[in-house]
Design a binder for these strands. Structure first.
Length: 229
DNA sequence: TGCCAGGCCGGGT
DNA sequence: ACCCGGCATGGC
């Protein structure tokens, strides 16, 4: 009988030992400032189905243009915004999505820190009402910008758990999220690092086209799907 | 060169 | 309730 909690805990230790801390947000975004938090929210939207390197180019453009504030972004015309974020791809839809997000912040008073300062579930629901903010983006904002312990699931998480036999093909977002959140202590710093490590493992060892996960640091945890959750 | 990236929405069945 | 096309750039 395999304990999912034990397996997920051991997986975390294995990844951390092998790859080390990934230094994701908020450290990467200039710590705990309001601008840093807003930058994390923007990054969460811009990185939808997009390489992080491209997102950094877009954020650099926004910073150089002095547009890393809710007020500035709210004033910026769509055309100007889409041009600044062009390197992140899907620039027209993302300009609209960023505008939608900023509008919600402005309507709540315009202070990003106040906007984020709500219980996780409440904040998540508010974020999900914004067109362009789906589950992963909402959870990323709750975890990385608001610093609250919610688990972020992404394509890598799904693929890695699937390949190691811990979920079946049709496990959906909420099920996978529940798997982690019930098995692990609600620790924001650990959830933060855990998701970053899954992305790192996915990039290096669990690529989409690769026949299998060679040299994967998680092969020790392979087991039959029936033994999982 | 083609494939891929830290998804999400809206319209059609 | 699912399924699918559309959205787009830059790096390997």
């Amino acid at each position: 009988m395999i304990s999912t909690a034990q397996t997920l805990t051991d997986m975390y230790r294995a990844m951390l030992g092998k790859l080390g801390p990934q230094h994701w947000w908020p450290a990467a975004a200039g710590a705990e400032s309001a601008e840093g938090k807003l930058e994390i929210c923007i990054g969460a939207v811009l990185t939808q189905n997009t390489n992080w390197g491209n997102v950094e180019l877009a954020i650099r453009n926004l910073r150089r243009a002095g547009c890393l504030s809710a007020a500035a972004l709210d004033e910026l015309p769509h055309e100007a915004l889409s041009e600044l974020i062009r390197p992140a791809g899907y620039f027209n839809v993302k300009a609209r999505r960023l505008k939608n997000f900023i509008r919600a912040v402005v309507q709540a008073g315009g202070d990003i820190e106040a906007f984020l300062d709500h219980p996780a579930g409440e904040l998540r629901d508010a974020l999900l009402k914004i067109s362009g903010v789906g589950r992963e983006t909402a959870d990323s904002i709750v975890l990385y910008a608001a610093g609250q312990a919610t688990f972020v699931v992404d394509a890598y998480t799904h693929r890695i758990l699937l390949r190691h036999g811990m979920i079946d093909e049709e496990a959906d977002y909420e099920q996978i999220k529940e798997l982690f959140e019930t098995a692990l202590p609600a620790d924001a710093a650990m959830f933060n690092e855990y998701h970053a490590l899954l992305v790192a493992v996915g990039k290096s060892f669990c690529r989409k086209r690769a026949p299998r996960c060679d040299a994967c640091p998680l092969t020790a945890f392979d087991h039959d799907p029936a033994l999982g959750a």
